[in-house]
Design a protein around this nucleic acid. Sequence first.
DNA 1: CTGAAAGCGCTAACAC
DNA 2: GTGTTAGCGCTTTCAG
Lengths: 346, 346
Amino acid sequence: MKQQVTVYDIAEEAQVSVATVSRVLNGSAPVSRTTRAKIEAIMHKHQFQPNAVARSLTKRETGIIGVILPDITNPFFPEVFSGIEQEGLASGHTFFLCNTLGDYGRESHFLNLMREKRVDGILFMGGRVNLRSCDPALARELAEHARSIPLVLVNGDVKDAGLTRVATDEAAGTTLAVRHLIGLGHTRIGFLGGARHMSTTAVKVRSFRRTMKEAGLAVRDAWTIPGGFSADAGREQMNRLLSLRDLPTAVCCVNDFTAIGAIKTAAEHGLNVPSDMSVVGFDDILLARHVIPELTTVSQQAGELGRTAVRVLRELMGGAAARKLTPLEPRLIVRQSTAAPGGQGD
Amino acid sequence: MKQQVTVYDIAEEAQVSVATVSRVLNGSAPVSRTTRAKIEAIMHKHQFQPNAVARSLTKRETGIIGVILPDITNPFFPEVFSGIEQEGLASGHTFFLCNTLGDYGRESHFLNLMREKRVDGILFMGGRVNLRSCDPALARELAEHARSIPLVLVNGDVKDAGLTRVATDEAAGTTLAVRHLIGLGHTRIGFLGGARHMSTTAVKVRSFRRTMKEAGLAVRDAWTIPGGFSADAGREQMNRLLSLRDLPTAVCCVNDFTAIGAIKTAAEHGLNVPSDMSVVGFDDILLARHVIPELTTVSQQAGELGRTAVRVLRELMGGAAARKLTPLEPRLIVRQSTAAPGGQGD
DNA sequence: CTGAAAGCGCTAACAC
DNA sequence: GTGTTAGCGCTTTCAG
């Protein structure tokens, strides 16, 4: 690999000092037209690329934003990341992406790595911050890092850690979904998927119950079936549901994956979605409008979530004290997987 | 943000020189048990994190691998990236991820950015390297970068640029799909999706034709319909196909997205997949086994592709001359979207 | 086994 | 406008 040229080489060839070269590089101070031209020509000739590592060392900033998330393979996250990148690029930021697979050890590892690498800020998603009650040691570790590096939690929370957050209002989203079903005439509604120890599930289930009660409808515990977030989990949950004597006419799913799995199993049992059973998802992943039937779901506006997160992080990096919580309003997307009970509609 | 502690602080407190501190940090030279213990204690006490930026500057290596890809929102890439990360983590590497959206300008931009940031190596996917004939200037730019930074092309090629590549054998994969269809008894087979100016499409179409001819079957030009890689594109292609008087009994699709779109449109037209029309995809994205019907497809083994790419890049970074092309064998995954024509099977 | 000192490539006072 | 010089925080000879 050939040797890179430095400001010294440029300075020497242009017969000026490195300071002047640095000035034209950054426009940090006036330089005469002629010397500037000469220096620029030489830079161009050598295809000079200033060493960002050296620059970072002196400026004490790397222009890197660390992004910690559970699993880029889950289609929700690529969309968030896209938003992040789009917004971050505008301010010249660059990204260091890590998948934790929800493993707390990896989370800690990456957090430390990011400190070593001197990232300018961290966007943290998933894992411990989605827990209903996060181990105090893990919470403390996160808060500790947040004291030395601007950090924003995306769609998560850690009680009493005082962290800056941007998050979709999942309770509102769930309410939207339930009301939609009620509006179609459903009175017998279930809730599929999730895990009780995760706050995201807890929030959704709580909102589900509240909305049902507000509408004067009964909540049947047997129809609230947790068990995970994957499509396979959704299949199993629907299987369990269908083993009951008495069935609901509609279900809310914790996310689109489980919804897709649930629909599949329902179909295998000879049920027609939506006429025999309405299903609504959550997230609005890209494929939601391509499956059969097209999925009615709640959009978290993943891209917007990412963009907002970067904006908030930027405030923090700029030294401003951002508001503690920036909420994002979810939206109901009505497609084909929901209809009036008994198929009277659609 | 509080001030970070440096080797000097540690050295001072331990009453040794920074060199010694550095030695215990890296185990680069013997240090007496007692001073080592003392230093380690102090490091621990201050939660000392060596500054990776400074270290990179002296060592002339950052431990960062740049990953350039078209669109992380396309489910194929997250899986490749997962593989990359998994393999790279093992050697202590870290990742700088960029989405080009297939835009050559952005590709150039990121390539330059990566040079400035002094990444140790680059994994390049998509965009110009998938072109049937890449603009010489773009090809030259890539080759130029490859001369100063280890670079491997993943699933792409640039003629005569002499770049190191790792790639799925797409021709073999297509042959697998076509033979599967022929084996089921199909003789009237079409090919949907892709773009003629992209080499990946060209390779697949060519292999499709060859395999058909080898089996003594006719290739009908009207049944080869390009038009893109998205699910929407797949819908439109199937629409066009169904407008013909004479229909095939099966189609190969350029990827899973188009296959899913094609199936959807076929269903809307009252056709049953697979009994009226068999459909095979390509890539085996995660959702392929969750759609209805489950998709028969060709797996590129995306994760393995990523891992292999890192291994090859590592050889290059180690100064070794890796083999020019490391091929990956695709695998046929038979599921529900294919059956004998007329529905005799399945 | 340990210390002094010279970089790595760039920026930013501070002079002139 | 431009040059000199002292860092940024770490590694690495070279002595001892």
